[in-house]
């Protein structure tokens, strides 16, 4: 692939596991140097597969990719010097201490002696692990292990950092700390971050641009605001009294003017409208006329969830709940 100015470039990536599972189906995107790019998608969307390919762990069936200007398929060895990876399933050696984990990681990248010791000490300090540095990582909390993971990914000052679901499974407060840490990293000159997540809020907070991934393809791409801006008006969300299966509820709303994109999943009905507060009475009336009970109504400015819903026909938060 021709090197470009982009820090990451993926084009037409496909990958099939066995005969059945098509993990990537023509996925592609471009990440400018020095930015945070989010891959947002539900479980099984192909986020980790993409990260594995871009970090040289795995190879695509077809397609092209370059990272830090180096072709991933042609020169994986050169790519490895330029990247740091925080994998979804950690990579910490639980029998080693934080300091030992970091030291070995540094040695692998050719750091030695005082330089190595200084760098390790610096990272332990920066990620709040100085006190626990000489304890075995098995005893670390989830948040501490994750911070150690990130520190290891940074030891050789990579140009591109991959964070695969860095906050999944962490407590909300720990997650907020982690967000601050990641936001801080991205402020550092030059570092490009590719972040995958299935938390909308995380993508919204951290990513300058993001791609919504569904079934191995990018279904939408842009900054969070651009993506939300594509959606005109407000979102109306109605919690129905009973689950709907036969399309009766959406049929009822077809006749209401100024309401569009009506979708029903179980007891949840969503629709879009120019002006939420003006449309609610008409919506309620139409549902009542159709004999459908209503439990609650909310009006919201468009969120990334709405963007996701619009592009995939499914709600991301719902998808998660059903797991």
């Amino acid at each position: 692939m021709m090197p470009t100015g982009a820090a990451i470039e993926a084009r037409d990536l496909t990958k099939t596991y066995g005969k059945e599972v098509r993990a990537l189906d023509g996925l592609g995107f471009t990440v400018e140097a020095g930015t945070v790019f989010g891959l947002l998608g539900p479980n099984g969307a192909g986020k980790s597969t993409t990260v594995k390919i871009l970090t040289t762990l795995s190879r695509p069936d077809s397609g092209q990719a370059s990272v830090a200007g180096v072709d991933v398929l042609a020169s994986p060895d050169r790519v490895r010097w330029a990247i740091g990876l925080v994998a979804q399933r950690s990579g910490v050696d639980l029998e080693g201490t934080g300091r030992e984990n970091l030291t070995l990681q540094g040695q692998v990248y050719g750091l030695r002696g005082t330089e190595l010791r200084t760098r390790v000490g610096e990272l332990l300090e920066r990620f709040g692990l100085a006190e626990a540095a000489d304890r075995v990582a098995r005893g670390y909390s989830g948040g501490m292990q994750r911070r150690l993971d990130i520190a290891m990914g940074l030891i050789h000052r990579p140009r591109v950092l991959f964070l695969d679901e860095p906050t999944t499974g962490l407590d909300p407060e720990v997650r907020a700390d982690m967000w601050a840490e990641i936001a801080h990293l991205s402020g550092n000159e030059g570092l490009t971050i590719l972040l995958t997540t299935h938390y909308l809020e995380e993508a919204d907070r951290l990513a300058g641009r993001l791609a919504i991934v569904d079934r191995g393809r990018v279904v939408a791409e842009g900054s969070p605001n651009e993506l939300k801006g594509e959606l005109r008006g407000d979102a109306i969300q109605v919690e129905l009294g009973d689950p709907q299966a036969d399309g009766q509820a959406s049929a009822a709303l077809d006749r209401v003017p100024g309401v569009w994109e009506v979708t029903v999943e179980g007891r949840s009905l969503r629709a879009r409208t120019e002006n939420g507060s003006a449309a609610v009475p008409a919506v309620l009336q139409a549902l009542e006329a159709g004999g459908i009970r209503v439990a609650s109504v909310t009006i919201a400015r468009p969120s990334l969830d709405d963007v996701y819903l619009r592009h995939t026909g499914r709600s991301l938060t719902r998808t998660e709940e059903h797991l």
Partner: peptide, 16 residues
Amino acid sequence: EDLNRGVIDRFLVSPV
């Protein structure tokens, strides 16, 4: 054990 903990994957994406 190292495979299950992701330790091997971490080394495989490094220049080791």
